[in-house]
Amino acid sequence: MNLLEVRNLDIDYVTQEGTLKAISDVSFDLKQGESIGLVGESGCGKTTLAKSIMRLLPKNGVISKGEMLFKGEDIVKKSKEEVRKLRLKEIAMISQSAMNALNPVYTVGDQLIEGIRAHSNATKEEAAKRAEEVFKIIGLEAKRLKSYPHQMSGGMKQRAIIAMALTLNPSLIIADEPTTALDVVVQDKILNQIIEIQKQINSSMVFITHDISVVSEICETIIVMYGGKIMEKANTKVFFKAPYHPYSLGLQNAFPSIKEIGEELISIPGSPPNLMKEQNGCRFQERCPFRTELCQKELPELKEVGEEHLIACHYPEKVNEFREDAKKRETWEGVRNRLIEESVGEA
């Protein structure tokens, strides 16, 4: 059964200079117990998407179209009070920087207990007991509940945030770059713990990151976003062996690996589209080395190219040719030269 079904979601940010279409027409399903890795460049809409599931968008963020069915009920239509009840109990978020997520003037334990009591009928003692339990699971000593955030290291604070998210065994965990600010040894350990707990309580997870190697290690499914749209959705194993979308091919070239020697990194020339402007055709066409006239005119739909493998490209049948060419530096240099010519033309 699908825990979450997102259908044709549009999210706009209303600003003084106009409307920014952060998410346009995004649909995907999340199964019970599944973990999806959401990757993409800054500004591609991944954090906006995650926040909208919790209905935590900033004031100028509007869900202008679409629905998000969580256990069959549309989150978009829920009242503030109803959404508040969902949070923490059903959907919990592990946010990016633990330093800003914890209140500096309360002990960590008090913050945990407050959360538990606000969303369940637990007494103070029960809540305190539960807080101790989750601290133990995540590898923190119970006496740390009495600490203030400033008395803890970055890793401990991030653990406390994770403990908080897990106190009520939520069915959906949203993790927004939970380990970005941490050292690699700590990151590795915490990621492992998140996955273990997620499996234990059989919750689903949306994991947001810009690091595709992390997704390869911990998620079953990967969604690649670009310019507010889904470019590719696939099983992680399939994706890393044989990505389809030209953007995914480009990302693979750009990523340094500790295991390989001598491979040359190639980046994707250009920058992401300005979503304040009207977009024509495929979002990636400006930086795509394989674009045609069709790509500039018509937006490609998400199409199935294999089992649960979706891509938004007009030319799925040319994938073998694309894969070959995408490995060559000249292919991407061509895009760079074209972009330079275009910018000269404009000026």
Binding site: V184, V185, D188, S213, E217, K237, F240, S257
Partner: peptide
Amino acid sequence: VLLSAVPVANPDHKR
């Protein structure tokens, strides 16, 4: 230890 903690973008690779 440091190297054993670096994630690798290859799902078949067991660290």
